[in-house]
Write a protein that binds this DNA or RNA. Sequence first.
RNA 1: GGUCCCAUCGUCUAGUGGUUAGGACACCGGCCUUUCACGUCGGGUACAGGGGUUCAAGUCCCCUUGGGACCA
Length: 467
Amino acid sequence: MSQVRLRFAPSPTGFLHVGGARTALFNWLLARKEHGKFILRIEDTDVARSTQESVDAILEGMTWLGLDWDEGPFYQSDNFPLYKEQVQKLLAAGKAYKCYCSSEELEAKREKALKEGGKPKYDGTCRNLPLQEDDGRPYVVRFKAPQEGTTSWIDAIKGKISFENSELDDLIIQRTDGTPTYNFVVVIDDASMGITTVIRGDDHVNNTPRQILLYEALESPVPTFAHVPMILGADKARLSKRHGATSVMAYRDMGFLPEAMVNYLVRLGWSCGDEEIFGLNDLIQKFSIENVGRSAGVFNTDKLLWLNAHYIKNGDPVRLAGLVTPFLQERGVDPTSGPDLVAVVRTLQERSKTMLELAAGAVFYYKADFGYDEKGAAKFFTPETPALFEELLGKLAALQTLSVESIEVAFKVICEEKGIKLGGIGPAVRLALSGATVSPGIFEMIQVLGIAETRKRLERAIATIRG
RNA sequence: GGUCCCAUCGUCUAGUGGUUAGGACACCGGCCUUUCACGUCGGGUACAGGGGUUCAAGUCCCCUUGGGACCA
């Protein structure tokens, strides 16, 4: 019983985007579910475009999502000797050959073929040349692929896929400058790392038959392939910057929780009956590659927002307090300078879709120098308001304990005495305490702010009204 | 242009020959209510089109259309 080995192999040419994150997640989930290994490999053969910053950004993104890896990160740039060796091996075995055609010649042939209605594929000029020692002439190494028959595989997501070998070119595996090409390197790495299942984006479907042929030439077992569909933008075009944020870390910065991101990403293309809410541990039990859909999906921020609201609402307030702190600091708020942040978070959890929103809603607790909402002040600050506030202050001061229940009782007593409804005093208090007409519950705010701060704010409002 | 893939509400999807085509987000309306939310109840909206196969097709086959990917 051999264990499954899966990998995520990003190119370090940018941050971790949502598509890559989902691919990584699917790989990770299957590895965890099957008690196999999850390997991280950095595909940095394109040295010019690869950067350490990108590597760091990708690792940061995966860590944020909670996707840990068992082996790696390995770097392809460390494997150049292996790739060279494998090229020589194929050359020696007659399974690859040196092609001396210049790119100009090839271009001319391609155009001619196109003009005559043929296919623009390599014509095999050098295919049967005997292997010669290097003589200074530039050459590429091509894989000698079979020209007849079909190559097919059972894709774990898409089912059977077949290609006619006659449609396939003799793939270049080593460029003129001696560097190996992508399709070759991937196969060598996956083979040498013992990868058993390759889960990747379906933009690689067309590469797969060539890669299978290479596995066979290398006499390596062919892994199971699972091609996951693309993620699209609202206009059904491939997701890109113009659709909004594509980096998972940008979502953190917008106040999204990693568990919301994971939950959203996994449900985009995968399902488990009617269930919508999944935690990571849940998913390890329930995930199955067979239930991944075959069609591309549109990234829908509204649903992500809904999930985020769900996780904020049900989240641990202590943890959320920690997460919201940087957002508050960005707004110039020092959360140690006022009411207990955990208590503040509790009043905002149910009404915040993002941590950014939660932070915005928390500012008034710490900064009392706000102005009053104009329309609200015109409507709710009346000549009678100061007397009501003074009455309220007296009742609050007399309370033994300051709880939501006792505060509510104080309000009810005033309402009865004055013959008014809660609406006759509540909105004015809300405005005095928060400056806004939208806020957490009045009783909760008073409890969190405390008597002293409540007094200050009501007195400030009284002064304002009396002008 | 060639090859390959895909096609159920606006969006994510359930559905594996017999369903009033289900759920979720979003939207609309009721209730709850000190605001906003939350919650709750209810509503509208989908099988791309055309041919087959079958007693029966969203489900199987073919074609068309549309979308996408890769190569060039």
